[in-house]
Design a protein around this nucleic acid. Structure first.
Lengths: 200, 200
DNA sequence: GCGTGATGCGAGCCAGAGCTCGCTTTCAAT
DNA sequence: ATTGAAAGCGAGCTCTGGCTCGCATCACGC
C-alpha cells in the first residue's frame, strides 16, 4: 500500500480496484491479469492504480487474502460450533457440510486461485487455514468423548484435514457425477471408519 | 516438434534441451523459466532450440508429460500387481507405499510442477493418472473378495483416490514431522476403516 | 472565493523475453 | 576431396506489460 486514501472518493477507488481485480481474475484468468486491464475494469487510469498499490502483486495479494480469510472463517466457525454442541457422526457431517459450503461460496474465484495461480501464491494463507482447522480437529479428538482407535491425535487430525479438503475441493471443482448428498455421506463414512466409530 | 532430428548429434541436442528444461525448472522455477535460460543451460544457442521445438510451451509439455507418465506407470503397476496377488490390509499398504514412492521419486520436480505451475497445465495428464488409478481401484473393489460396507464402488474409489493422493502429496511436499511409517499406517487405517475392514 | 494538497489522468518509457534470420560449421554420401 | 543438406549460431527484432511522471482536476479549510 503506497498511500493511504483519506477522502471518501479515494477510498471508493481502492475498493473499485480490488473488486475489478477480482473480476479480471475471474473473467480473464491469471495469465492475462494485467494492471492495465484492472484499471480499465475499475474505470480508472493506470496511474491512479499505482497511487495506492505498490505493484501488481499487492493487488493480487489482497484479493487472495480476502478470499481465504472468508473460507477459513466459515469453516473454523462451523468446526468450533459443532465441536462443543454435538458429537459423533452428526458432528462430522455438519463439519464436512460446512467445508463443502465454504468452497461452494465462490467457485469461479476458487477455480482461478487453485488452478491458474501457482500454488505457492496461496501457500501461506492456505497453510494458515489448514493449521487452524487441523488444531481444532486435534483438540476435538483429544477431548473426544468418542472412543478413538488411532494412537496420535495430531497426525490423525492432519490426515483427516488433508484428505477431506481434497475430496471437497475436487468435488466442487471437477463436478464428478455424484450428488452432493452422496459425497457428504462418503466423507462421513471415511472419517467415521477411520476414527473407529460405528457407521450409522 | 518443428523438425525431426536425423543425425546422432541433433538427437543428443534435443535430449540436452529437455534435460536442461528440467534443470532450469527445478533450479530457477517456473516464473523465470525462459527459452534463453534453457539454451544456456543446454549449452546451445536460442536459435538451435527453435529448430526442434515450435515454442516454449512445447518444451515444457514434454518435460511435464515424461514426469507424470513415469509416476502413473509406477503407481498403476503396483496397483495392478497387488490387486491380483493379495487382498485386505497388506494389499492396501503396498499400494499406498507405491503411491508414496512414486511421488518421492523426484521431489524437486514434483514441487515445481505442483506448486509453481498453474494446475491447469498439469490438468489433463493428472486427470489421466487419477482416472486410471480410480478405475483400477473400482475394479478391485467390485471383484473384492473382501466384504465392503459402501454401496457404490465408483464413488468409493473416487473418494479413496482423491483422499489418498493428497495425503501422500502433502506429506512428500510439506514434510510434516510424522515418520513415513506412521503416515503409511494412517493411510491404511483410513482406507481399511472406510471399506469396513477390521483394523489390524 | 482561493489556495493547497489530495486525487486522477494517460501517453509513453523501458526491461525482459519469445522468437527469427542470415550466416557459419559440421556431417556424410559420392 | 567435393558438395549439398543438416545442425548450430547469436545479434537483434518485436511486442507485451509493468510502471512513471508531468500535468489537470477536484475537494476541503480558511
Amino acid at each position: 500500500m503506497r498511500k493511504t486514501p483519506t477522502q471518501a472518493r479515494s477510498r471508493a477507488t481502492v475498493e473499485r480496484i480490488l473488486e475489478a481485480g477480482r473480476q479480471v481474475l475471474i473473467d480473464d484468468g491469471y495469465e492475462t491479469f494485467s494492471t492495465n486491464r484492472v484499471a480499465v475494469a475499475a474505470g480508472i487510469s493506470p496511474g491512479s492504480l499505482y497511487q495506492y498499490f505498490s505493484d501488481k502483486a499487492s493487488i493480487l495479494d489482497i484479493v487472495i487474502s480476502r478470499y481465504w480469510e472468508d473460507v477459513s472463517e466459515r469453516t473454523a466457525a462451523a468446526l468450533a460450533l459443532q465441536a462443543s454442541s454435538s458429537t459423533g457422526t452428526p458432528a462430522i457431517r455438519s463439519v464436512a457440510d460446512a467445508l463443502l459450503a465454504g468452497l461452494e461460496q465462490d467457485p469461479a474465484l476458487l477455480r482461478v486461485l487453485t488452478e491458474e495461480l501457482p500454488a505457492s501464491r496461496n501457500r501461506d494463507r492456505h497453510a494458515a487455514l489448514v493449521n487452524r482447522v487441523r488444531d481444532l480437529t486435534a483438540a476435538y479428538l483429544r477431548a473426544g468423548s468418542d472412543a478413538m482407535t488411532r494412537p496420535d491425535p495430531q497426525i490423525t487430525a492432519w490426515v483427516l484435514v488433508v484428505a477431506m479438503e481434497n475430496v471437497a475441493l475436487r468435488w466442487v471443482l471437477d463436478r464428478p457425477p455424484y450428488p452432493r448428498e452422496a459425497v457428504l455421506e462418503e466423507m462421513v463414512a471415511l472419517t467415521a471408519g477411520y476414527l473407529g466409530h460405528a457407521t450409522s
